[in-house]
């Protein structure tokens, strides 16, 4: 659980992944739950995406806090972890259209000289086969993560 000072003005929660590859849909599922919880709060915005895109920088240029939620294929202690995301200027792969959070932050810094606080919440998936719906184990894991995110944001947004 991070101990971060956050501003209230523009918080973005971005969950991404492919919901048709079962637990790869963790990010989008988490955003659905969080959007419902925070539907009456101002200053908090949500994206449920298949993948990250470079033109997100136009939306994020005024962001003060960004939380990314994505599935992890590797084993994580407790099933999930928070990681601070720093701007990365070299992480764009050469043969792919895939963008990662650090690269998005790198774009923000390069284009707008903005470096918002950013966290990646990785949630361990169990089944990435073709199909819809999370596995029960992972659904429970996402619930824990959602609770942690709510606690984290309540410090900034107030109850």
């Amino acid at each position: 659980m991070p101990n971060a000072e956050t501003k209230q003005s523009s918080i973005w929660i971005i969950g991404y992944g492919n919901p048709q590859r079962r637990d790869d849909g963790i990010g989008q599922y988490a955003v659905t739950k969080l959007r419902d919880i925070f539907k009456h709060k101002e200053g908090i915005h949500f994206f449920a995406l298949h993948q990250l895109e470079p033109d997100l920088v136009f939306e994020l240029q005024d962001a003060t806090l960004i939380i990314f939620v994505d599935a992890a294929v590797n084993e994580l202690r407790g099933g999930w972890e928070w990681t601070r995301v720093e701007p990365e200027l070299r992480s764009l792969s050469y043969l792919t259209h895939h963008f990662n959070p650090a690269f998005l932050l790198g774009l923000l810094q390069s284009l707008y000289n903005e470096s918002p606080e950013a966290w990646m919440i990785s949630v361990q998936g169990e089944d990435f086969d073709i199909g819809e719906g999370l596995t029960k184990e992972v659904e429970d894991r996402v619930f824990e993560v959602v609770v942690e995110i709510v606690k984290f944001l309540d410090r900034d947004l107030g109850s």
């Binding site: 492919n18 590859r21 993948q51 990435f128």
Partner: peptide, 10 residues
């Protein structure tokens, strides 16, 4: 870049 992705560098 189709379908499932994984966190990490390539």
């Amino acid at each position: 870049s189709c379908a499932t992705h994984a966190v990490g560098k390539m």
